[in-house]
Design a protein around this nucleic acid. Structure first.
Lengths: 142, 142
DNA sequence: GAGTCATTTCGTCACCTGGCGAAATATCGT
DNA sequence: ACGATATTTCGCCAGGTGACGAAATGACTC
């Protein structure tokens, strides 16, 4: 059954009412990503990242493209959704957390996925020792 | 301590991630209101409405002005906040629930507050028998 | 001071959310 | 078929959310 505009708007805000999902959307603005790339930046369990991506997909904010066992997540193509997200992230351009994420992601994109995504990977092996996120679980001692 | 842009944005979306709070904000766009006017439209307990207004105030979306035992709630004056809310409600202009709310509110604004706000008021005494909200608690049989 | 009133706070309950590890699923390489 | 891999689902836990009625608060009237 078609949902009302109000109900859809509530779902939109619910999807964005979480720092992790905002960080994911911010990263996707620079191009598509797989779960393990996102997991590497966020320092969360893959199951947690997968759950968040599920929320974003149900809210119509991201779409997925499967290639074998790989799943490529990207921002939704819909112009209206893009315009909403543009407005959201225009206000977040200078946020420190998002800038740290972007910097780390830039480095991680240079690593072949087959190497980056091994579950036993230690980022230190790649010469990358990302600072823990500014807040959130699994925060390690600096 | 100053919160980050990301944290503030999360709070903004959390505040809007609820149909009741969106309805309240929509109603406030036509002018300031007291708790009992909002309560009359929403058909929720006054404590519930007060709690939602508290959320909106903490998110910086509404401000209050006390006049004796009356509290007048209005949208925040900040231009940036106003612009965000304009964007939100531009997409909701045709929503049925919000239109019903606006119609009922127009009628209620003609009723003196001293009469409207008596806790023992039965809206039927005013010749107003609002349809129950399209969804939500305390929904009565039609 | 007592009673009334508008509003807020408190405590409770049912339900939801977000984290995790373990298990399951689907795909790929051998 | 088996092992490996990326990803998703499940179950659990702690904490949060949104509804309510009752009580409390502060202002007003007498």
């Amino acid at each position: 059954m078609t949902r009302s505009a109000l109900a859809l708007r509530v779902e939109f805000h619910k999807a964005l009412a979480n720092p992790v999902r905002l960080r994911i959307l911010a990263m996707l603005r620079s191009g598509s990503l797989c779960v393990c790339q996102i997991t590497a930046v966020l320092r969360l369990a893959a199951s947690t990242v997968s759950a968040h991506l599920g929320e974003l997909r149900r809210a119509g904010l991201v779409s997925e493209r499967k290639d074998g066992r790989w799943v490529e997540y990207r921002l939704a193509e819909d112009p209206a959704t893009r315009a909403l997200l543009d407005g959201v992230f225009r206000d977040l351009e200078r946020d420190g957390q998002l800038r740290d994420d972007a910097a780390l992601l830039t480095r991680l994109r240079t690593v072949p996925l087959e190497r980056l995504c091994r579950v036993d990977l230690d980022l230190a092996q790649l010469g990358i020792s990302p600072r823990p996120p500014r807040s959130g679980p699994r925060q390690e001692e600096r």
